[in-house]
Design a protein around this nucleic acid. Structure first.
Length: 585
RNA sequence: GCGCCCGUAGCUCAGCUGGAUAGAGCGUCGGACUUCGAAUCCGCAGGCCGCAGGUUCGAAUCCUGCCGGGCGUACCA
């Protein structure tokens, strides 16, 4: 949790008339401490009259070493600059000002250069379990987005061939980011942009035409620069089954639209099916052709021209993108009168904002990074703020088998498709692995590892924990241990949960909302798999050392409550990832 | 040439909106199942965080330069 000075002041204003709902949601223990610290710090800042100190940030972190407390804050250190006093002295003032009305804290220490270490009473943690179980699927959800309308556009592969593994990574990231943003209170739509216009479509149609003529026995040389993957042969076969040899030797110019339409429609359907198998659905499939039909490119350029960002040079129409920091201006209409792909993209983004989205997230392959600056320039020329568009660049996926690269050539149409990967390793493993790296970082995807149903495979590690937890409740049921609180919400007393490793798990459960909020702020989903791994690891270790269903009824009940909370958070996180949480494996 | 991204343990990577002793998985080696699922757990070993400066009370984290790798650099889509 990070608060700026400005936020402190805002918080204080709000706090006087409203209650705690205005604080960003976090674990109940953490939010109480933040509130307490805010209360202690505000007077110090007021006293110093530091209106221009908005850059000071305060952080409440969990120290690595237990001796440093359950939480630690460096406020005193960061306040040194604006208060112009030594940090330990400031820390003392902060500590003095803490009002622990609910008796949350066991003790508070000032340590090192001026850290404030806070020790929470063990019993205070138990509230986190109650909080989780009172609304398991709502846990971790926040209202950071405040209903802001966001569009996430991803995959958007050209309908000229099946999706490959790189698209799969972008798909997983886009889908999960959408889930995360939604969990953080944004209103999210997922969209796929179909590049169904331009000469690549003609190329696609011709590719099918040539294959078709070949397969019905005409001798045609297959020209360079066309799509010649195996899928084109299959398409030609389908075409023959439906239309026979009706188009034998038909003049290309006359029948090309037939072939183009057939090919793009079939391929797009295939893409839809593959994405569905990957657990991904879109709210909108947006056709580039529809932009041309609406004359949207012309309108867009006109609007930009009205703001003086368009000029003519050597017969071409240019966008003055350098006005917004692009390295050179860009052509939108070529001298031959044909608009560029970029022009369509500008019109598309204008359309997005016209539809009412306040923020737009584009997920692109990293090889498109050269387009970021011009696109950002573009939306600014339409009167949008730079930060209204967030472009996520997804790095390459290197496909491996047993540690060795799988040779792929897009040119020759030889590549491993997403569908093949899903069929081979399963949706869950593929999604999880795609999400275990920062989007910025290239990813080695080893098919053999992903397929392994063992501890080499991070998905199974997590799913196993979930299945194990489910199994514990089955055993409890068999032994006649009442767990009706799972439904009723009347949880048994938790006083028996006193072991350090129990409190450690509960504390970690309490961090989950922060993790999700962090994903949403950074638009990086990889924190979730890492969090899950750590949570599950804590649980497995605990499980191996302690008996949950044991002889002491009260202890058993309390531990079952904790187990239930762990299970719910695992399930909650896996749901965000679009990965199944199996009861049995 | 210019621009963007990346250099952290043997390998693959977290940590990067600056904080106290830099982490995980895999791999090596050695241990734990008559007891809730051993697809699990425990332990050992492993590091000038690419190099050099700078800012700071404090730098893996921010700035500059260099080295190494990837990508981009069209009146292509």
């Amino acid at each position: 949790m990070i608060i700026t000075v400005r936020q402190y002041k805002e918080f204080r204003r709000n706090h006087q008339k409203k209650s705690k709902e205005d604080l960003p949601k976090m674990s109940i223990v953490r939010s109480r401490i933040v509130r307490m610290l805010s209360g202690a710090i505000a007077p110090l800042i007021d006293h110093a009259h530091t209106s221009s100190a908005g850059s000071v940030q305060v952080e409440l972190e969990i120290p690595k070493i237990p001796e440093h407390g359950d939480f630690a804050t460096n406020v005193a250190l960061t306040l040194t600059r604006i208060l112009k006093r030594n940090p330990r002295e400031i820390a003392a003032h902060v500590v003095e000002g803490l009002k622990d009305e609910s008796g949350l804290l066991e003790r508070v220490e000032i340590a090192g250069p001026g850290f404030i270490n806070l020790f929470v009473k063990p019993a205070a943690w138990h509230d986190i379990l109650r909080e989780i179980l009172s609304d398991p699927s709502g846990y971790g959800r926040t209202d950071l987005g405040r209903g802001k309308r966001v569009q996430v556009e991803f995959v958007s592969a050209n309908p000229t061939g099946p999706l490959h593994i790189g698209h799969g990574r972008g798909a997983a990231i886009g889908d999960v980011l959408s889930n995360v943003l939604e969990a953080c209170g944004y209103r999210v739509d997922k969209e796929y942009y179909i590049n169904d216009a331009g000469n690549q479509m003609d190329t696609l149609g011709r590719s099918l035409y040539y294959r078709y003529q070949q397969q019905i026995g005409e001798s045609f040389d297959f020209p360079e620069g066309h799509y010649q993957g195996e899928y084109m042969r299959e398409l030609a076969g389908e075409f023959i089954r439906e239309s026979g040899d009706r188009y034998r030797k038909a003049p290309l110019d006359e029948v090309l639209p037939v072939f183009t339409a057939f090919a793009s429609e079939r391929i797009l359907n295939g893409i839809r099916e593959d994405l569905e198998a990957f657990g991904i659905g879109f709210d909108q499939w947006f056709s580039e052709k529809s932009l041309h039909e609406k004359d949207a490119i012309r309108t867009t350029i006109e609007e930009m021209a009205s703001r003086d960002y368009i000029y003519i040079h050597e017969g071409a129409t240019w966008f003055r993108s350098t006005a917004f920091g692009d390295e050179k201006d860009r052509v939108v209409i070529r001298a031959n009168g044909v608009s560029t792909y970029f022009a369509a993209d500008l019109a598309y983004h204008k359309d997005k904002f016209d539809r009412g989205y306040e923020m737009v997230v584009d997920i692109w392959g990293a090889d498109h990074h050269g387009y970021v600056d011009r696109m950002l320039a573009g939306i600014q020329a339409m009167g949008r703020k730079r930060e209204d568009l967030r472009v996520i660049l997804v790095q390459l996926v290197n496909l491996l088998r047993a540690g060795k690269p799988v040779a792929m050539s897009t040119r020759a149409g030889e590549f491993v498709t997403l569908r093949e990967v899903i069929d081979e390793v399963g949706k869950d493993a593929a999604r999880f692995i795609f999400l275990t790296r920062r989007t910025d970082s290239p990813l080695d995807f080893d098919l053999d590892v992903a397929k392994m149903q063992s501890n080499d495979n991070p998905v199974f590690y997590v799913q196993y924990a979930h299945a194990r937890l489910c199994s514990i409740f089955e055993v409890a049921g068999e032994r006649g241990i009442p767990c009706d609180w799972l439904e009723s919400g009347n949880h048994p007393p938790l006083d028996a949960l006193t072991l350090p490793e129990e409190l450690e798990i509960i504390k970690f459960l309490g961090e989950y909302p922060e993790i999700i909020a962090g994903c949403s702020a950074s638009l990086e989903p990889h924190f979730i798999p890492y969090y899950l791994h750590e949570l599950v690891s804590l649980f497995h270790r605990y499980y191996n050392r302690n008996r949950i269903v044991g002889d002491d009824p009260e202890l058993t009940q309390a531990r079952l409550v904790m187990a239930a909370a762990v299970r719910e958070v695992i399930r909650n996180a896996l749901e965000l990832l679009g990965v199944d949480a199996p009861r049995k494996m």
